[in-house]
Amino acid sequence: MVKFYQQTHDYEHPWSRVTVAFWLRYPNPFAAHVLSTDVIDRHVDPNGVLHTTRLILKRGNVPRWARSFMKHNEAFILEQSHIDPATRTMVSVSKNISHKRAMVIEETQTYTVAPTDPNHRTRVKYEVRFLSNLGWGLTSKIESFSQKRFADSSSKSRLGMAYILEKLQEKSKLPGYLFKPPQAA
């Protein structure tokens, strides 16, 4: 079965700052479940687009009914992104590579300038696809899990980004500002 959810949100920050926050978003107070992040591949292509692959380890929140399929309460996520400063577009696709037999959760985030105020506002389209081969009467459980998981992760992702963006904005006002990653609380 497949479930699909989508949401759009505008950040009141310029696109370039939002992309900086994307790299700095972990750790943040809304992502205590993120245990590690690593860049495993990165290059700029001939068109000036930056491609990055990151490996993210998250502490799982496995529902009781799924524990027999997911023995380890940790999951590796692969995140592939590309950033094109010429078109001011950033796309990130992430997918779990652990526990795939039980469920695959694929999240796509697309960041573009908001048409209403392209220099100060950034629009993110957040899409999540849940794919599961578990049948056997679990359909309604998977469905409600997916729905809850989507609401939870989209709001945490938004709050985390907003937190980092605020820190970046504060820093940019300081005299002699030189880029430094913000410290998480």
């Binding site: 370039s16 790299w23 972990y26 750790p27 590690s36 690593d38 860049v39 400063p85 880029f179």
Partner: peptide
């Protein structure tokens, strides 16, 4: 943020500091 390998975390921070500077001061420009 830590690396998946504890012994890599320091190397990761050194690289990220360099990358973040490159990203904001060069790539985005």
């Amino acid at each position: 943020m830590e690396s998946v390998g504890k012994e890599c975390t320091q190397l990761k921070h050194q690289y990220e500091e360099c990358f973040n500077k490159w990203y904001t001061e060069k790539f985005l420009k």
